[in-house]
Write a protein that binds this DNA or RNA. Structure first.
Lengths: 152, 152
DNA sequence: GTAACGTTGTTGATACATCAACACCTGCCG
DNA sequence: CGGCAGGTGTTGATGTATCAACAACGTTAC
């Protein structure tokens, strides 16, 4: 890294973060491309559908729960669900102040097609390329970073 | 993970990828929020500006190089540069068939403000939370995944 | 009771990402 | 020469993300 002026990343290795972003982007696109080619589902479509399909309760989740689980913004979930509802992938039902999202039969069909392709792609692009030890450490690392930040 | 129907992720641990995406999203937003609050720069703005500022050659890069380095799509770079040009952050110059993007003084000012904030945020949200060993293994892991996929 | 507050969700405007189609060179083959 | 192929960039349409403002409830405190 050459650094004109005072832009050096100095002591701590910011390059690690750049590398992370780059690899994440590469893998993400590779996986999504395979799924989209096979099913026409977009990444956000699939993300929501998988979350619903996996969730024990009859393919239903409250939007706020979806937001937390995916680390998405409220409005992002709202807009996305609106679009997916229009295409018949999910249904929305207001319960008290909450909004419960349920996957439809059509949505379920789509995931059933997409899921094996998705999983195979992830396996091929990520899991199979790592040693067992790397997988373990990566899991630890993600657990650490996923935990809420320490208080000041 | 309970799994209605045939949606089980089975043998290989897809949860690792979900976890990765979730953590990536969380950290990304945390870092970007700090930078945006301080400078008004968006994530893509900063991404491009940092790449230019770091690149030895006078803050200039060809769009195709930018695309490769960031793992971005061509059109994504093109649109983004167009918007940034409009705001005076970069300048574009056609050279033969290529498009060379150069950071402006104004752009450079912005990065100089943003960069320390960005780096501190990354340090706090990522680097400082990992053990030296985790950092090393993570670096290896990213190197493996960043390499071109093995031929079939 | 009701006012202040926090949680959850929606809407519309704007920025950004993706896709398909096109335009432009440059090199290379016939 | 003529034309085709590949690499690079742009444009416009559509899908997605973010932000600010608002609405509708609950909760809690007074």
């Amino acid at each position: 890294m050459s650094t004109p002026d005072g832009l050096a990343s100095s002591e701590t290795d910011i390059a690690l973060w750049f590398g992370w972003k780059r690899v994440h982007e590469t893998v993400r696109v590779a996986v999504v491309d395979e799924v989209t080619a096979a099913t026409g589902l977009s990444e956000p479509d699939l993300t929501i559908l998988m979350a619903l399909a996996i969730s024990g309760d009859d393919g239903t989740l409250r939007q706020s729960v979806l937001a937390v689980e995916l680390a998405w913004d409220r409005t992002r979930v709202s807009h996305q669900v609106t679009r997916m509802e229009r295409r018949g992938l999910v249904e929305r039902k207001r319960v008290r102040r909450a909004a419960e999202v349920t996957i439809t039969e059509h949505g379920l069909d789509q995931v059933r097609t997409a899921r094996p392709i998705h999983d195979a792609a992830v396996k091929r692009h990520v899991l199979d390329r790592l040693t067992p030890e790397q997988r373990i450490v990566l899991r630890e690392t993600l657990a650490v970073l996923g935990a809420p930040p320490a208080e000041a």
